[in-house]
Design a protein around this nucleic acid. Sequence first.
DNA 1: TTGAAAGCGCTAACAA
DNA 2: TTGTTAGCGCTTTCAA
Lengths: 342, 342
Amino acid sequence: MTKKKISIKDIAKLTNTSITTVSFVLNGKGRTSKDVAKLILDTAHENGYEPNRMAVGLRTGVSKVIGLLVENIGGPFFGEVAKVIEEEAEKLGYSIIYCSTNNSLQKGRNIIKMLSHQAVDGYIITPLKGLEKDIQNIIANGKPVVLIDGYFPKLDIPHVLVDNATSVYNAIDYLIKAGYRKIGFVTADLDLVQLHDRMNGYKEALIDHGIKVDNKLIFKLPFDQPKATSVMAMKGFLKQYKQMDAVFFSANYLGTMGLECIKELDLSIPQDIAVVSFDDTEVFSLYPPGITAVQQPVHEIAKSAIDILMAQLSDKNLDMSDTKLHIPAKLIERSSTTPKNT
Amino acid sequence: MTKKKISIKDIAKLTNTSITTVSFVLNGKGRTSKDVAKLILDTAHENGYEPNRMAVGLRTGVSKVIGLLVENIGGPFFGEVAKVIEEEAEKLGYSIIYCSTNNSLQKGRNIIKMLSHQAVDGYIITPLKGLEKDIQNIIANGKPVVLIDGYFPKLDIPHVLVDNATSVYNAIDYLIKAGYRKIGFVTADLDLVQLHDRMNGYKEALIDHGIKVDNKLIFKLPFDQPKATSVMAMKGFLKQYKQMDAVFFSANYLGTMGLECIKELDLSIPQDIAVVSFDDTEVFSLYPPGITAVQQPVHEIAKSAIDILMAQLSDKNLDMSDTKLHIPAKLIERSSTTPKNT
DNA sequence: TTGAAAGCGCTAACAA
DNA sequence: TTGTTAGCGCTTTCAA
């Protein structure tokens, strides 16, 4: 059982051929006679030969590893993304090294540096403001990158994410048509395009319906503070403006926290306040009376990201059109937004 | 920006020394004069030198990569585990390659094979029945393994997981003391030690309280069938035995599904049926009236796993005691199990 | 159809 | 205190 790993040299010896021949046969570059090829293949198989990735990597500069840099691998959205990406990558013989940034620029920087030492072949990255240079560096060094869940509006870098603006626009539009007019908007106080886009979708929908944007109805929750503090703050917001008849949460953790606040404030959904959250989760489908949510096409996002990356990997001078995807979301209508009988 | 990676050789040239000297300095193996050392260090730093991991790996046989094989990286438990493990590993200069088995033996096998070609330095694995040989093989080849969330009772392999039997025992004991007597048990029809242990905890608690185990109150939900089918089956079970006054779900996805069933059956918690689930999640804390759950010490499990692995990595002939951890869980009491007024 | 040999970047035994 | 050199396992050019 403790058999040492067998190498190409061993196989050459075993078959009375040269390492060159073995290498060619094993890599399917036909130039050898059928007999020899078969013998080598059989011997390799019998002995459980497997190429040493380090050696191949050192020689060819290809590691068959992809770096995945997400905000939080433990979260529902990124967890699912990670799963799909891994499954797709595995089919193609790639492995995934993952890291979480927790929205910290510093951490993102370090990790990119670390991954580049690891000599990964490509990257899938959740972008952060300030990471532009680092990412452009990667690309300048010839490694492909696909951004996920965000993008740099001014840079020409492939990305795939949900169509934030439109999907929020649609959700707000839906609320308005259901009779709600004083719609609050809760977001995180983070400078991320995806959040700005969501906010814009919200504002545009209001404006298109002739409703004035009221900044008092917009609440930016500070990031990275203790949960109790956040709950307190959010309760404060929800309580303060009793005239609010609906509220939109722009991220799933905000929605979940919002439900907790609403419960503690003893408000009923949707009678006292209608609720919609971005990013559907099990909580929203289960929590009574059922929370309407914007469902991200997680699977499609993940699949597209890996597809685009692989395309770049196999064809360096790829046509870069069709590598910037804003995929429509689906509004899952539940009873938290029942039409209002005004 | 498109600067090619700089190598040890370049530094040697730049500093008029030899690659040996550079290597020694960079690895902190003092044997060089202070002046030369400083010069080399500075030059390396200025040029952003970073060792080529492939080369180091090929030469030393150490990849600084750990393989993480879990049931489902997208799930709440494993997602959190993955996050902690990554954070700890990163501090120590290790990266994590992850894979999900989805409880498929075949997939687990393939992945272990694949990881071993990747030449990972160590493994953290969620064991599956049938994977014993493969795992023993890894160990025989000198790579350390720590099992997580499960173990092989007959094998002497380090592992860390929650104390399943005791924690379920305590939960059932709590239910009984709260006045419930006809307690159902829902589990997955998978042959996993952790599930058996949970079932045993359930049975023992009943027996210790002089309650007879009624197999009709135990339901094993087939794994890997469409969700609708599972819901149907579980509803069937919950409906069939109206005399059941409480039910224990032995996994979080079962608990969540159970809530859905209970809702559809229009039963109220805890009046019609009290509910406890294994593995606390956000759903349970939020879902009215609050679902009592067995909270796994996720953080501690993950931390211990990586610690034990690292200990083995740094000291091959480690004392193997203290490497088999069954960590106590905490019962989070909520209103789904309010004492019964009989 | 085959093989010898160079070399990817690094470590470390050995020599000076 | 420093440098020369072999070699980790592999791919690939060049020659036979």
